[in-house]
Structures are given as C-alpha cells and as structure tokens.
Amino acid sequence: MNASYLRFAGRRLLQAVVVVLLAYVFTFVVISVLPGDPVTNTLRNPENGFTEEEIARIVAYYGLDQPVVVQLWQSLSHFVVGDLGVSLRSNLPVTRLVAEVVPSTLALAASALAVALVLAFAVAYGTQNLPRRYGQGVLRALPSLFLSVPAFVVGLLLIQVFAFQLGLFRVIEPDGAWATFFAAVALGIPVSAQVAEVLITGLDHESRQEYAAVARSRGLGQARLFAKHLLKPSSLPVVTVVALTVGELLGGALIIETIFGRTGVGSLVQRSVSTQDLPVLQAVVSLAAVVFVVVNLLADLVYPLLDPRVRLDRAPRKAAGQPGPEQPTPEQPILERQVSVP
C-alpha cells in the first residue's frame, strides 16, 4: 500500500462524502418543489389522527415555519448524525420504517445480482466455447433481448408460468423460496444483460489481441486460453459495471416488489409517494445514494489492486519514454471512467 494509493483513496473518499451530501440536497430541492403545502395538509388530515400538540411538535421538529434554506440546513444536520426524521403518516421514526423493509430488499437485490452474474458468465462462456454452429448466434442475441423486455413483463410471465400454470409457488406467499427466486430472476435479467454485454465485448476483444494468438502459438488450447488468459482481463470491467448497476437493482425493486407482492423498500416508496410522506421519500432516496456511492467507492478502491496495469502515480511508462506533455492521467475514478453502455 504505497503513498500514492493512499492519496488516491483519500481523495476518492472525500469525493464520495461530497456526492452523498449533494445528493441529499438535490433530493430535498426536488421534493420541496412540490406545489402547495403537503406536509401540513397531511398532518391535518383527520385520518392520520394527529393531535394539535403533535402537529406543533412535528412542525417545530422539521422547522416547517422556517424558510426553505433553514429547513434544508436542519434536515441535513439531522441526516448527518443518522436522524432521518419522523414519518408524517404513521408518526414512527423513519429509521425504524426503513430498517423494517431493508433486509427483504437487500436479500432480493443480492439474489438478483447472483442470478445476473451466473447468467451473464454462462452466456459469455457459451459465446466463446460452444462450437459456432450450436447456437452461438442465439447466445449473442440474448443480452440485447434481455435489455428490451420490461422487467414487469418478465415478472408477470414468470408468475403466469411458474405460479399459475406449474404451481411452483403461490402469489399470496411472496417470501417463499421459489417466489424470491423468481423475483430475483425478473430483477436480475436486465442486469445480466449489461454484464454479459461487457463480458462478451471484452472476451471478443481479448481473443483478437495479439497475445492470444501468441499464447496459442505456445500450444495452448481454447479451454486453457479462455481460463488462463482471456477471462481475467475481460472480467475486470465487470467490477465497474456491477457497481454501476446497484442503482438499477434498487430502482427495479420498486416494480418487482409490486408485482410479486413483496414488502420492501419499493413498496415503502410507493406508499410514501401516494401519501406524500416526504420524510420517508427523502430518507429512502438519500440512503439509495449512499449505497450506490459506497459500493462504487469500494469498486474504485479495489480495482487498482486487481489490475496491474493501473498505475496511480503519474510517472511516465518507461524511464526512457518521451515525457510528452500529453500524458493521459491514469487515475480516473470509476464514476468518470468510460464504461461502454450496452
């Protein structure tokens, strides 16, 4: 762990903190663009049953009688110490509401990611190692197809076939193993398309490289070439892509949880949208940004350790090399790195 890596890590960490804070502010601004005064409207809605004292307490807590900038400042300072406020609908702390649903969504997202990775590597393996005439073309078309089917259609199709026709699971038991598995498949398919696309592009690129031909000239067969030479350089970009798809998994959970009737962050968001429960919305969006930023920070920090080519110091490639003024800077955070969009 040399000094330049630590400098890089420090700068990246600082960036991440800045981005999280800005994301919070941005969300706050978007939400407060809302016309009217939904907060007090909701509070005074007799259905919610707040007493006048409670309303006064909440109004004071959120500083709703203050100018927007002051409200933002107060809200932000609460967020920084981990206080997400109180739900306008249920009068419960938002932290508790969120904590209740997070495990279910995390489980779903993690299984979806697992499904996506298995599927993507299987498809990519097939495109390289199956004989040309046995369906390589079909495999190559799969990512494009996966990207073109709406997640809700996949979900409905899976339910139709596996719940209604085959009876593998019942829709009224959304947390059963099979139900979770098929929800993960529906959520994972678009992600698998992106990973597979990157893998296939990488494998095709690597296998066209001169070093692949030279390795073959040393007597390596296709299987060993794939395992020893092609797989690692092609898989490195997957680290970046997976980190970037975290947002997609969280966003997609909104739809998939609805279809499969699961309780989770998605259903919480939907409920908060329909009841205008702004503190909950603000909390969920900010936490999603935190998750995204942390995951991408980790990917950024890990990447240089995996890829020997990435050099964090800006020293010239070779001592004898021309120290031209246009040396590209090798240090490029993942958020700015160009990832081919499949």
């Binding site: 001169e210 031909a213 030279v214 350089p233």
Partner: peptide, 23 residues
C-alpha cells in the same frame, strides 16, 4: 496443437501487445 510451440515457434510483430498484460 502439439506441433505449436514444440516444433513451430512464433515471434510476433508488436512485443507490446503480445503478452497478456494482467499476468
């Protein structure tokens, strides 16, 4: 395949791209 390397050696054009960069 057994002939490659053992009996037929190959020296490529561009040394910079002829070895796997991550091994």
């Amino acid at each position: 395949r057994p002939l490659r390397g053992r009996s037929l050696g190959f020296v490529p054009q561009d040394p910079g791209s002829s070895l796997n960069a991550v091994r």
